[in-house]
Amino acid sequence: MLMQWNDDLNIGVLEIDIQHKLLFDKFNAFADAYQSRQSTDEIMRMFWFLEAYAVTHFKDEEKLMQQVRYPDFDKHRAKHVAFVEEVNKLKERLKVEGLTAPLVTTMTGFITNWLIDHISTMDRAIGRFVQNSSQLPTR
């Protein structure tokens, strides 16, 4: 159930690559809390923290895309919005169903697949754009 970071997922923008690795860490903290049968409160805390970090990361990534004038910004942002909407649906299910094994399996499957697919395709395209245009923003 844990996600293993693979350097092939690096997109070539250091700040974003670091945040992606941290997303994996936050996901693994949530999955580990569930697998080790920690309290429901602790598991939920890990899930909320993962969600909050994902939203923060999306904002940073969107800021970068705007700074470099990334041409597919709207399409990319729509994927972020869809992720947040799906996570909100999962949170509603958690409130109704509780922390059940099938729901956790659904949650972890969705997050794992989404992150790997999104990083491998959408985010990698940002990295290529930044590298090809030499438009990495300065701080």
Rank of each mutant, 00 (worst) to 15 (best):
A52V: 00
R37W: 15
N10E: 11
M65S: 10
T105N: 09
D123E: 08
T121R: 15
K79H: 10
D25M: 04
I111S: 07
K95T: 05
V68L: 12
K95C: 07
H57M: 12
V96R: 14
W48G: 00
V84G: 00
I11A: 01
R128Q: 09
N113T: 14
A31T: 08
E62I: 04
D74E: 11
I16G: 09
N6Q: 13
R77T: 08
P71F: 01
F58G: 02
F49C: 06
L90S: 02
H20P: 03
S39M: 06
W48L: 07
G109C: 01
D72P: 01
T108E: 02
M46I: 06
E42Y: 03
D25Q: 10
H80T: 02
H80S: 07
Q67F: 12
E51F: 11
Q4E: 10
L103H: 09
W114A: 14
P137M: 07
Q4L: 09
D25A: 10
D41F: 07
D60W: 03
K59W: 06
T138G: 15
M107V: 13
M122W: 11
V87N: 04
S120K: 15
M1R: 06
K95A: 14
A29Q: 13
H20D: 00
F110Y: 14
D72K: 05
F24Q: 02
R45S: 08
A125M: 12
A54Y: 12
V87K: 05
S133P: 00
F27R: 09
W48S: 05
Y53G: 02
M44E: 09
P102C: 09
L103D: 02
D25E: 13
T121Y: 15
Q35V: 03
L14Q: 13
S36M: 13
N88F: 12
E51M: 07
S39E: 08
K26A: 14
P71Q: 08
S120P: 09
A78E: 09
T138V: 10
K89L: 11
E51I: 06
I43N: 02
E92A: 15
T138P: 15
K59C: 04
P102Y: 11
L90A: 05
F27E: 04
T112C: 03
I116A: 07
E92M: 11
R93H: 06
A33P: 07
F83A: 07
Y70E: 01
A33I: 06
A54D: 01
K91M: 03
R77I: 00
L99N: 06
F58D: 00
